[in-house]
C-alpha cells in the first residue's frame, strides 16, 4: 500500500458517502444515472468473487470489497424502491448494450488466464472504465448538475486519477511490476473525466453552478 492508493481508496469511499448523503438529504436521486449505479454493482460483484475463493489479501482489502458490494446494492435499493418517484428514466437513455457487449468481448479476448474468475475479473476492469458513461451522458443531456452531484463525480475522478501515480510508484518500487489490463483501462477511465474536471474547476470550485455551455 502506498499513499496514492490509500488516498485514492479513501476518495472512492468518500464518493459513495457523498452520493448517499445527496440522496438521503434531498430525498431524491434526481440527476443520478441508475444505469451507471447498476453497472457498479456488476463491477463489484464480478471483481470481488475472490472473496469466496480463499485468496485473502488483508482485512482492509476484504472490508473494502464487502463495503463496495453492499453500498452499491443499497444505492440501487434507494433509487429503485425508496425514492423511485424521483428517478426519471426518460433522461437516463444511454444504451447499456453499447457498454456490456464490447466489454464482454474484450474480457474474452484480453485476460490473464482463460478461466471463469479471470475473465470476469477482466470484464469488471473494462466495465468499470466505462461505467460512468451513462452518468456523463445524462449530465451532457441536461447540461447542468446539482453541486453535490458534481462533488460525487469529482471524488470518483480523483480516485481513478490517483491510481495512475500508484502504478508508476509500484513499477519503480516492485521491480518493474506492471498490470497492463488495469493500467490501460485505468488510463481510459481517468481520461473520461477530463471534460468534467475542466468545468468542475472553472465553475463549481469558483462558487458557480455546474452548467455546460449551450
Amino acid at each position: 500500500m502506498n499513499l496514492f492508493r490509500l488516498v485514492a481508496d479513501l476518495s472512492h469511499l468518500a464518493s459513495i458517502f457523498i452520493l448517499l448523503h445527496k440522496i438521503q438529504t434531498t430525498r431524491s436521486c434526481r440527476g443520478i444515472s441508475i444505469k451507471t449505479q447498476l453497472l457498479y454493482v456488476l463491477v463489484f460483484v464480478t471483481r470481488y468473487l475472490d472473496l469466496f475463493t480463499g485468496d485473502f489479501v488483508s482485512i482492509y482489502n476484504s472490508v473494502m470489497k464487502l463495503f463496495f458490494i453492499g453500498s452499491s446494492c443499497y444505492i440501487i435499493y434507494l433509487m429503485r424502491i425508496k425514492y423511485k418517484p424521483t428517478n426519471d428514466p426518460s433522461i437516463d437513455t444511454f444504451r447499456l448494450e453499447y457498454i456490456l457487449g464490447p466489454t464482454a468481448v474484450l474480457a474474452l479476448i484480453f485476460n490473464y488466464k482463460f478461466t471463469f474468475l479471470e475473465v470476469l475479473w477482466a470484464f469488471s476492469i473494462y466495465l468499470e472504465a466505462v461505467a460512468i458513461l451513462p452518468q456523463l451522458f445524462m449530465l451532457q443531456r441536461t447540461g447542468e448538475a446539482e453541486t453535490i452531484t458534481t462533488h460525487y463525480l469529482a471524488a470518483l475522478g480523483i480516485y481513478r486519477g490517483l491510481y495512475i501515480p500508484n502504478w508508476i510508484y509500484r513499477y519503480f518500487t516492485e521491480g518493474g511490476a506492471i498490470d497492463p489490463i488495469a493500467v490501460v483501462a485505468g488510463i481510459v477511465q481517468t481520461a473520461l473525466y477530463v471534460d468534467f474536471f475542466y468545468v468542475y474547476f472553472t465553475k463549481v470550485l469558483q462558487g458557480q453552478k455546474f452548467e455546460l455551455p449551450a
Binding site: V57, N61, K65, Y112, Y163, I178, D179, A182
Partner: peptide
C-alpha cells in the same frame, strides 16, 4: 517489465 495481475488492488 513483466505483466502481472496485481491482486491486492481494489
Amino acid at each position: 517489465a513483466e505483466p502481472v495481475r496485481v491482486k491486492d488492488e481494489l
